[in-house]
Each structure stands twice: as C-alpha cells, then as structure tokens.
C-alpha cells in the first residue's frame, strides 16, 4: 500500500519535517512497505480485547506535592541555541 504524495507531504508537515519533491517517491514506497508489514494486523479479530498500553498493566504512582527543584536557568540556557535576558528566543510567533 503505497501512500500518495499528498499524504506523505501531509504527515511530514504534521511532524515538522520537509520531504523534498525528489524524495517523495522513495518515502512513499518505504512507508508503504512498512504499512504492508503492519497490514497483517488487520486480519486479527480483537473484539473484546482491552488495549495494553503498559507492560504488566502497571498503575500510576503519585509524588508528594513538594518543591524539590531550584533555579538552574544559567546552566540550562548555556546550551540553548538562542537565549537573552533569561528567555529562549524564537522567530516571531503570530497568533
């Protein structure tokens, strides 16, 4: 099941990836192959089966409401691509 080019571009946009026009065919075929591999799932009747999201059906542990973290801004922003006056800078966001 090959994906059409529009679908490939659409998924790429959702994932903030750019697929060049000359690569689209390749991606379309490769993704199609993976979907073919996955297609075996369709045949299985899973009526009444509860999806298993976590191994062993683990349940959540909660933590106490305590402030345990302290300011590490300088350390964290030392590795930032662009920061100024304590803020991370990005190209203008337009609402």
């Amino acid at each position: 099941m090959a994906l059409d080019n529009d679908t490939v571009h659409g998924i790429a946009r959702l994932a903030r990836l750019k697929i060049d026009d000359h690569e689209v065919e390749k991606y379309s075929a490769e993704l199609g192959n993976i979907l073919d591999l996955v297609a075996q799932m369709e045949a299985v009747d899973t009526t009444g089966i509860e999806p298993m999201t976590h191994p062993f059906d683990a349940t959540m542990r909660l933590r106490a409401d305590e402030v345990t973290e302290h300011n590490q801004r300088d350390k964290f922003q030392a590795i930032a691509p662009s920061a100024e006056r304590g803020l991370y800078l990005v190209p203008k966001v337009i609402d």
Partner: peptide
Amino acid sequence: QALKLRRL
C-alpha cells in the same frame, strides 16, 4: 489494534 495485539 496494535495495543490489543500486544495484550494477546
């Protein structure tokens, strides 16, 4: 569907 198969 994949999560259901995971349980199986």
